[in-house]
Amino acid sequence: MDVVFKKPHALTDAPLHYCPGCTHGIVHRLVAEVLDELGVEGKAVGVASVGCSVMSYNYFGCDMVQAPHGRAQAVATGLRRALPDGVIFTYQGDGDLAAIGTAETVHAATRGENITVIFINNAIYGMTGGQMAPTSLPNQITQTTPYGRDVNSAGFPVRVCEMLSTLDGVALAQRVTVDSVKNVKIAKAAIKKAFQNQIEGKGYSIVEVLSTCPTNWGLSPVDALQWLRDNMIPYYPLGVYKDADKRDNMKGDKE
């Protein structure tokens, strides 16, 4: 009997601290599988953000740095300068990348820093207990918007991939999700391309992964995936928003 599926080498044996059904674990595994397949675990350096993924340094087998809140891509920029041959990636949530770290994100992208960014968008602040994030949907109920996010006072959600796809320094901007086996495979292909772009020196690659937060959404893990399909995907359409390998890519090609 052959093993057809096992834990990737680049994922340590430490048990994940995430809540049951949190899709962080799936994305962690995909990143580790890609590091294995590209054979770059030894020269990879990850940057952990602040948020639930703050302790991802315990889970990846490669070297990790833990950055101050929002500054992961600034730290990754420094790592890129110090380690020209390293494989540098950041792993950030929406509260980190799209709120306090917006400036670092936009400027790392427009400089075309040769790094890979894994962006987990679950439309809420998970670690701090479910407050409204910049990516929370209109009328979404959170701890700080108990009557639903009112766009008149709280504004509209940020669509990060669309925003960054207008910048010339970006090589890949793609939004994926992990709600089904098919979409997990698409997500893995996107993450692999984002790492390959970096190894080939093509520039800044961001993969936005629509994720669930069953605990703070108040849903079971299975229902949370359905909520993601019903509410998040219509507002955040999946697809490739920019791919420097293709011409005419500013229209948001849908898969």
């Binding site: 052959d2 057809v4 599926f5 990737p8 674990g25 495979k185």
Partner: peptide, 18 residues
């Protein structure tokens, strides 16, 4: 042995043999 379960497992708790 399709490994769909292991693909969706957030905690990589499943090993699949075939």
């Amino acid at each position: 042995g399709c490994a769909f379960c292991a693909t969706m497992c957030p905690d990589t708790a499943i090993t699949v043999y075939k």
